[in-house]
């Protein structure tokens, strides 16, 4: 009977990731010998240790009484924040810095329940001006504020 579902899942993921690393390293890169190690040896060893640690996380999960429960990660901010960064990465080479900042601020602000379009627009204008001053004028970085290159 699994008492602590959180640690059981965490340990399983660690076990799976470690095994995958060990398997991938040993099949794709030469291991070499103990004296002359190949590029695969160190990652292979690390993968094996990681898998063993995964098992060490799993074992107590069967008997633990006072399971602490899942860590707090609110879903709505997570989704909007990650999407906003993806959009920033896609927008900046095509439209320049100012539009990318605006998109980032607008989408990420949606992650908060108290979203207000006026606030979001103010923040994006302020941040665009501030970034221009800090990065372009202050640090002389080659940023283009606006462009159109689809």
């Amino acid at each position: 009977m699994i008492q602590d579902k959180r640690d059981f899942l965490g340990g399983m993921l660690l076990l799976a990731a470690g095994s995958a690393v060990a398997l991938y390293a040993s099949t794709h890169y030469p291991l070499g010998t103990a004296q002359r190690m190949g590029p695969g040896m160190f990652p292979f060893g690390a993968g094996v240790i990681m898998a063993l640690l995964g098992i060490l996380v799993i074992i107590p999960a069967f008997s633990r009484r006072d399971a602490a429960g899942w860590g707090k990660v609110p879903l709505r901010p997570l989704v909007f924040v990650l999407i906003s960064i993806v959009c920033f990465a896609l927008a900046i080479p095509r439209f320049g810095l100012a539009p990318a900042i605006t998109i980032l601020v607008l989408i990420s602000s949606l992650g908060d329940r108290r979203f207000s379009i006026v606030n979001a627009i103010i923040v994006s204008v302020v941040m665009s001006v501030l970034s221009y001053i800090i990065f372009v004028l202050g640090l002389n970085l080659p940023f283009i504020m606006f462009r159109w290159a689809l």
Binding site: I85, L104, S108, D112, F115, N119, S131
Partner: peptide, 12 residues
């Protein structure tokens, strides 16, 4: 709610 988008801007 005003601060976190600004933090994200600096990060990106």
């Amino acid at each position: 709610n005003l601060l976190f988008p600004a933090i994200l801007v600096f990060i990106c």
